[in-house]
Design a protein around this nucleic acid. Structure first.
Lengths: 214, 214
DNA sequence: GTCTATAACGAGATAGAC
DNA sequence: GTCTATCTCGTTATAGAC
């Protein structure tokens, strides 16, 4: 039954936009709204469940796309993650909005969502680590607090990576979700028409910036 | 009176998150909620007015920040726009969400919002044009449809610019709003603590990528 | 015990009559 | 401008069915 509720709620999100109505979900299940409270203590709990599911779904899509590429082809893996994230977002725009759009008013994400939220960027990090590029170029000096932040993140991960390279990966990560957000939220509509080409081209630009050979 | 309503609504957006309650606005104005319909046909019309105002406010902030820098200092002007956009977004998070977050369900932005929405990217373009960098590096080949898109955009603008350079500027533009979105929507919270330093560093990385000297 | 329905509260957007 | 009425919503207390 919990699964059934989530399934319907997910579909409502997909068709109706960010508004999720408990009453509408219950109506479709031929159930009264208050009956939902047997399965979820409140609306936020249902939202949290949907958010966690969405993070996992996105991560699965990205991992699956990336896994289909030859391990030695770092640039191919990079492109695969980018395209995988974009394809998932276009197929699940409302869920994408839930994850990366305006936070739901009055809703604060529990701490459990931090780990699944970082799956994609970790994938990008792994690709670059596998490429074994050596220390990154010191294009711009870092302040000490920033360097400490990045070192801390590097220490949590296996493999060889320095702060400069990580900053470049983060640029790629921000670019990826910035671009997908622009497209999903319609902010590209009157500007670029060849969106797929544009996306691929930007993916290549950022792969260059990160230093992936190819 | 219309101005009064907008003023109060803007303040409500700023303090209360994305939820805009007509009743709350009316309550504060000591009138009844339905009286608002004398000035705005519905909630969406009020939203449209707020969105247009927000675009203008953001553009003004960016222009003002950029105007304070020596015309010859391209990199300084680039940084000023980035910091100006970030400062505005942090000061007006709900309005930022209105402009760049999840689209309001059932609300579609009228065409009037296209021009004010492009003010910031035009500012970035102008800075790069003023730097007179010559043709950009052909880092990655473009498809013909993409090249046509970019040429069309270039033709709408004065100055000397080629497609490759414009693609790099767009990367900077996406990066800027991706980064600001991450911060405003709290997606950076458990990752980077020295956010200002991180932001400045990314601004420098993208200025390098675009080719601004300094 | 476990689930569901009924009814209610307070909040909201909106339409129409005055 | 107001007031009233109708619709939505999340949520809870309570009562009843299996």
């Amino acid at each position: 039954m919990t699964e059934e509720i989530k399934r319907v709620a997910r579909r409502h999100l997909a068709t109706q936009g960010a508004d999720l109505s408990l009453r509408a979900v219950a109506r479709e299940l031929d159930i009264v709204a208050s009956a939902l409270y047997r399965y979820f203590p409140n609306r936020d709990a249902l939202l949290t469940a949907l958010i966690l599911e969405a993070y996992e779904s996105l991560a699965e899509a990205a991992v699956a796309a990336e896994a289909a590429v030859d391990r030695a082809d770092g640039r191919g893996r990079w492109y695969a993650v980018w395209r995988g994230v974009r394809a998932w977002a276009l197929a699940h725009p409302a869920e994408y909005g839930l994850l990366y759009g305006t936070p739901v008013p009055g809703y604060s994400a529990p701490a459990d969502t931090v780990t699944p939220a970082s799956a994609v960027v970790l994938l990008l990090v792994r690709i670059v680590v596998d490429a074994d590029l050596g220390p990154g170029p010191v294009s711009t000096p870092m302040t000490e607090p920033l360097r400490a932040d990045l070192r801390r993140l590097i220490d949590e991960q296996p493999g060889d990576l320095d702060e400069n390279r990580l900053a470049l990966i983060f640029a790629g990560w921000t670019q990826l979700f910035g671009l997908v957000g622009f497209e999903v939220f319609g902010r590209l509509d009157q500007t670029v028409t060849a969106v797929s080409d544009y996306f691929d081209h930007q993916a290549a630009l950022m792969a260059d910036l990160v230093g992936l050979p190819g």
